[in-house]
């Protein structure tokens, strides 16, 4: 925008709404946001995650070998009742599931009986962080890794793209060990092993074993759309491989989108338990 045009437009805008006269720094951020087709949120901090009511303008083509950006599935990412369906449990899987007492889903129990590790602020772990509370997250690409930075629990994953192989006998981790490769110019595939058996798969108390392998397929449909498919391969817990997410739609958010904190603080969780959950179930 030319300086001359600005001198005309800005005072006019100020008459209409004094809040429209930002500092030069916020103006620069707003300008960047405005260049983005999704520039809906006006908030520069703690940006709300609200699905647009109207259809978005047609998106540009998918860039080549690029899934970077801030992505959001809005309410669809929360999945309080767990995955839509899963393969039948093995005997071991069934036995484990029976010891997990979830607060939601088909086997939900009342508040005081829940033994969800999340209630004490244990890590959600992977892939529960995709199957529950998948809120806005940033994908960043470096020469050696693709990084995924999640709002929920403010955790991150590093997916190695330097050609290394997955570890053969990994020490289990909450978020496992991940390597990724480009299947084609618009499809990035991640394989993960070494997952801590203490985590649940979803909010419905579905179990997994430490032998589980998870495959994520990120397919960039267009500039603003990423499809995520997640395959669970855990023969110890499930009779056959199954899809936890199938072409699940993620929408790109403006570059100015400020991802919030969503942290389980043990002191807050304890206070909630004492103040609300326990008296509600007595």
């Amino acid at each position: 925008m030319s300086r001359r045009l600005l001198t005309l437009v800005l005072p006019a805008a100020a008459v209409l709404c004094p809040c429209l006269v930002p500092s030069s720094a916020t103006r620069a951020q707003q300008s960047r946001a405005a260049q983005n087709q999704n520039a809906a949120p006006a908030a520069l901090w703690n940006t709300p995650s609200i699905a647009p009511k109207q259809a978005r303008p047609s998106s540009g083509p998918a860039p080549r070998r690029d899934i970077s950006g801030i992505w959001d599935a809005f309410a669809a990412g929360i999945q309080p009742t767990g995955v839509k369906s899963h393969a039948p449990f093995t005997e071991w899987g069934e036995k484990m599931a029976n010891t997990y007492k979830p607060g939601d889903g088909p086997r939900k129990v009342s508040l005081g009986l829940i033994n969800d590790p999340l209630d004490g602020c244990d890590p959600a772990g992977f892939p529960r962080n995709l199957f529950f509370e998948l809120r806005p997250f940033r994908i960043a690409q470096t020469p050696d890794q693709i990084l995924m930075l999640y709002e929920y629990q403010k955790v991150w994953r590093a997916i190695w793209t330097d050609g290394r192989e997955l570890p053969k006998d990994p020490e289990p981790r909450w978020y496992g060990y991940s390597v990724g490769h480009w299947q084609d110019d618009y499809t990035f595939v991640v394989n993960t092993v070494g997952l801590d058996e203490r985590t649940w798969l979803d909010n419905a108390g579905d179990p997994h074993s430490a032998d589980m392998r998870v495959e994520e397929i990120y397919h960039r449909v267009d500039e603003d759309t990423l499809e995520l498919t997640v395959k669970i391969d855990d023969p110890k817990a499930y009779k056959e491989p199954w899809l936890g997410l199938n072409k699940f739609i993620l929408r790109r958010q403006p570059a100015s989108f400020d991802i919030r904190e969503m942290i389980c603080a043990p002191s807050e969780a304890e206070e909630y338990k004492k103040t609300v959950a326990e008296p509600a179930t007595r």
Binding site: A75, I78, P80, T81, G103, D104, G105, K108, V109, S110, L111, I114, L118, E133, N203, A280, T281
Partner: peptide
């Protein structure tokens, strides 16, 4: 209302 973590059984 939808709550993100717990069900409504209580």
């Amino acid at each position: 209302p939808l709550f993100a973590h717990h069900g409504n059984s209580n």
